[in-house]
Computed example of a mutant assay.
Amino acid sequence: KEKWLNISKEFEEVWNFNHCIGAIDGKHVVIQCPENAGSSYFNYKNSHSFVLLAVCDANYIFTFVDIGAYGRRSDGGIFRDSFLGQKFRTNEMNVPDPKPFYFEGNSMPYVLVGDEAFPLTEYLMRPFPGKQGLNQDKIIYNYRLSRARRTIENAFGILSSQWRILRRPINCSIETAMKIVQAIVCLHNYIRIQDIGVNEYITENMVDRDGCDGLIEGSWRRNIDINSAFQDIRRCSTNNSSRKAARIRDDFCEYFNSEGAIPWQFQHC
């Protein structure tokens, strides 16, 4: 629980999202057609892949990875059936108990943040759907969530930018490809921990950052080859959500537009 609280504190201080314990995203890892694999690894983009599902902290350090789901599972169930998803669903992750953001406020849970590909749950917040017709409060909530969620986008971008084996489909057995990805994640974390405050492995221009006129995209976005080993996942779960999960999102939205507002957020709605 102490580690979760430390991660949450960094997300609040750096990315202005309270009670965030990680940003989550998934990628298809494209591989050469494996022998005797049938259709298990054949995905909707007509290539062969397995799935890398990952959570990172506020400093682009991976905290959890789930490697190896079949690439054909492009829609629904990837997060739900992953080891990580199962542990969150059964409340086995030692996440701290909910507590208020401020005196006499509602008790708020600690949550992951993800994009539209993920479900809205009591432990995972996603944006309000649709770009048209959203009121100012919801636009601001989406902006605040996006700032925190971009940490995992940038973490994947750093991998594909710095580890050249990911610039192309990986040409080896499935088992070896999974070990390669696991090794890259471990090496990335090791180097990144040493790099905090030094900025040699991750330079300032490499990752997304806020500028006077809005978002300045990181250089990794311009350097990604169309044949990169990383491809986006369309949807990791169904769009069903509980009333309690929707109420929690509404509470986050209300807080970000009242006691938790930051001065510059109104420039982005």
Rank of each mutant, 00 (worst) to 15 (best):
C269E: 04
I158V: 15
R126A: 07
A23E: 00
E2G: 04
K45F: 03
R73N: 15
I202S: 14
C212Y: 00
D57M: 10
N227K: 14
K3L: 13
I184G: 07
L84A: 14
N227G: 15
C20S: 14
D250Q: 13
D250E: 10
E204R: 12
R80Y: 07
E10S: 09
R243K: 08
K179G: 05
T121C: 04
F103W: 00
A245E: 04
F252T: 01
R73I: 09
T151R: 14
S8W: 00
T176P: 08
I67P: 15
L112W: 05
C236P: 00
T151Q: 14
N223L: 08
N227D: 11
R249C: 01
S258D: 11
Q267G: 09
C212V: 05
A54M: 11
E92S: 14
L120A: 11
W220F: 08
E122L: 01
A58D: 08
V207P: 06
N189C: 07
F118N: 02
F256K: 06
S160P: 00
N240Y: 03
Q265C: 08
W163N: 03
L124T: 02
Y123F: 12
G22L: 04
L5C: 05
Y201A: 04
S219L: 11
S82Y: 09
W4D: 03
V14K: 15
H268F: 10
N135C: 10
A245V: 00
L159K: 08
A155H: 10
A117Q: 03
Y123E: 03
V29Q: 13
E200H: 12
I31F: 05
F17I: 02
T151M: 13
L112K: 06
C172V: 06
P119L: 06
I7R: 07
A183D: 07
P119Q: 08
S173A: 02
T151S: 13
W4R: 11
F42Y: 10
K99A: 13
A246G: 06
S160K: 02
Q194M: 10
G76N: 06
P127S: 11
Y110G: 05
K3I: 12
G68R: 09
R150F: 07
N240D: 10
R73T: 07
D66I: 05
C172N: 10
I193F: 06
I24V: 08
Q182T: 09
N154Q: 12
E254H: 11
S173H: 05
M93E: 03
A69Y: 05
D250A: 15
A117L: 06
N239H: 08
A155P: 02
K9Q: 04
Y102E: 10
I31D: 01
N154L: 13
H268S: 10
